[in-house]
Design a binder for these strands. Structure first.
Lengths: 416, 416
DNA sequence: AGTGTTTTTTCGAGGCTCGAAAAAATAGGG
DNA sequence: CCCTATTTTTTCGAGCCTCGAAAAAACACT
């Protein structure tokens, strides 16, 4: 199974480590890198000299203006923005958004587009994605050859290999191998990511203090999604993107879910479920296709104003989320939670019932210590996650080739 | 965070890899090891020569009697049984069992003992464990100094550091740092493991073909426990042993569980729950302390014989397990399941309702492809797992010191 | 006994990291 | 304005480690 370490892997790994240290720290000095990586100064000096020679790193002022110190001033090492570029493609309900990002993580160019994903044909959907990527690539400011990777995120289930969308609520189409399609079309390596996983990745980069080793990002939107980081690593299912938190069963045989089953968490906490309950429709009522953000905000406003079916709908949502989280906590222990999406703005209405429900579950004893953040806008987060995901790939595969994070034959292909 | 690879780590890691290859393969030749580890013949030759010199490996006949081949015959490399020894301590309801195992994995000596764990005082419980270990250590056949590690398994919740039992159904006592106690008493490194996790470890060694990267071991006993292997690694919670599958909520506000909460899977599928339902007692009835294996077998026999409350009790158990598994599968995707424990012998009564329930959940589409094994006797499995766990520790820590499986500061201490 | 085949060991080459020492670059003080 | 203390960075030789190729070893077959 797991493979021995060959001698040349050593340099590759340590190169990757230096690049990662620079990406995390911003503009660290060689001394700082030596400290965080545990490698000697000589090694860091040798590696960074190589990397500068290859145009991957560039010298500059150090980040922390700890300027006024006695000795030789530190030289900051930063990522060379021109070393490469990546593209992010975020496909969500009725919305397609693309950005080109330089190697240092700055957005160079972007484009957004509304489209009717629910009714589009398979070909049209693929066509739109290909077309928007092509337009960005043909933008005169960008050197096509420098675009080293494309990361595409979609709401729904993707496979573990990050090649295909298996199922998505934003389209009736299934099993579209977006990653393969884009690779074939543009000759640029591409991956297909789950939107909630990208949210989690982004949170980790945004606030590594709070979101370090174990945390949960939950998307409260038309559907319910989850991104999970455990022991410092993104958690995915064994075959799919996993974490189908929204489709854990809250009440066996309960409310009708968009997925066709009954009693899922989403069937109580998704926008359509809150909407359905707020209008006092039966739990058997077919879920509506879309509820606008404005409608949801109005619903929340009414719920805050007076006790009534709207408030009760949010209570039920909180209860379902609470029991779901409780069951999750039974498996992984409690962890900080970030609530993302339009209903996160109504978290004040959700929280009481949610906490009460958690208290009834195995994670309950720590119920009070669990903390929630809210972030109403998921799109920037998803894009940021995609960007970091793509850049990390570039770091590892292009500039430190042959490194395998986990034992696996995939890396071997790249070497050949 | 993650630390660079120093030059001397290389040899350490590759030594560990060779030892692991030998432990997995039995009596592999040097050529075989080179093939499985991917290292060159020269390296394997050098490392194995070192290891033989240190008395860790020993030469012998090769395992596969591929004797009749043309060239120079292979020399088998095996673990030297006298290189070290480990002890396993399994503490379960009213039962304590200890074994001494040599470095090659053979049982040298064992002792079992009945005791009344539910009513014993904290001191008595600790005292019994210490005493039984001491007796084994003082057994004249065993060189005390060669015992390099003790692995203790208990039903219940342990901490991630594998130091303490936090809570267990077999005793009212909580937070006993067994690992620290045994270390202090005997000066031998010890770990505190969760019983179901050890079952999973054992299954992996017993049948690596079937139980490789992703599988689930479920203990159907008085309580319901789970051991989970994901992506080839034992899955534990972030703070505790995790995997409290039995206490996922099946029905909010439902049947009274032994843990004091309501609606847990265990409150429908644990022995006491099946017993309660079979006797048509209310779901609010306080769980009984123990149901003997004989009583459970009688119950199962009755259920097979005629339709009635017994059969219905097993049906409810299946339903609860099914929905629980379904929720789990929503998070991790379906995987092979091993049912272990006395009620695994009644799996024929459980399976129909279980499959039907899974079909109602997110994992449902693959419901038919999910396969179940049964193993009525959990004790040997737990002991085997403990033994392999302890031996693996010896492999890594004693004979290849300073290796860090995951990035972590702990290793730094060993280097210094 | 000789030949062919496969396994294992030997040996020199090439790389990598490390520690120590040297070099470089600046602030502060007289 | 020059010198010194201080801190960062580079240089250099030593010590390991793995690798590939070739040699040696050990047996089956003819």
């Amino acid at each position: 199974m797991s493979v021995g370490i060959r001698h040349d892997d050593l340099r590759r790994r340590n190169r990757a480590m230096v690049i990662a240290a620079v990406r995390r720290a911003g503009r660290p000095s060689r001394t700082e890198i030596a400290a965080t990586t545990g490698l000697s100064h000589s090694t860091i000096s040798a590696i960074s000299s190589d990397l500068i020679g290859e145009g991957i790193l560039a010298e500059g002022k150090p980040s922390e203006a700890g300027a006024l110190k006695r000795g030789r001033p530190q030289v900051g090492l930063g990522l060379n923005p021109e070393a490469a570029a990546v593209m992010t493609v975020v496909l969500s309900l009725n919305f397609l958004s693309v950005a080109v990002i330089d190697y240092a993580g700055q957005v160079i160019s972007e484009e957004q587009r509304r489209l009717d994903t629910l009714t589009m044909s398979r070909e049209a959907l693929i066509g739109e994605c290909v077309a928007i990527v092509r337009r960005r690539l043909e933008d005169s400011d960008i050197d096509v050859r420098s675009v080293a990777r494309i990361a595409l995120a979609i709401q729904g289930i993707t496979d573990t290999e990050a090649r295909a969308m298996l199922w998505s609520p934003i389209t009736p189409q299934t099993d579209i191998a977006f990653a393969d399609i884009l690779e074939a079309e543009f000759g640029i390596p591409a991956t297909m990511e789950n939107d909630c996983n990208m949210m989690a990745v982004a949170l980790r980069w945004r606030d590594p203090e709070r979101y370090r080793d174990d945390f949960i990002a939950i998307l409260l939107s038309h559907g319910i999604g989850m991104g999970l980081v455990l022991k410092g690593e993104l958690f995915t299912g064994t075959h799919s993107s996993g974490g189908e938190f929204g489709h854990m069963i809250h009440r066996p045989g309960g409310a009708l879910c968009r997925c066709g089953r009954r009693g899922c968490v989403e069937a109580y906490a998704g926008n359509y479920a809150i909407w359905r309950n707020a209008r006092q429709l039966s739990e058997d009522t077919e879920p509506v296709a879309d509820v606008s953000d404005a409608q949801m905000r109005a619903l929340a406003a009414t719920a805050r104003e007076r006790d009534g079916p709207e408030r009760e709908a949010y209570r039920k949502a909180g209860e379902a989320l609470g029991y779901g989280l409780g069951s999750l906590f039974a498996l992984i222990d409690p962890a900080p939670v970030a609530m993302v999406g339009v209903s996160a703005a109504a978290f004040d209405l959700i929280e009481p019932a949610l906490r009460e429900a958690i208290a009834q579950t195995a994670g309950g004893q720590h119920s009070k210590s669990i903390s929630f953040d809210t972030e109403p806008n998921e799109l920037p987060l998803i894009r940021e996650g995609c960007a970091m995901r793509a850049l990390t790939f570039v770091d590892q595969e292009i500039f430190a080739p042959g490194v395998q994070t986990k034992a696996g034959p995939a890396a071997k292909k790249n070497v050949a």
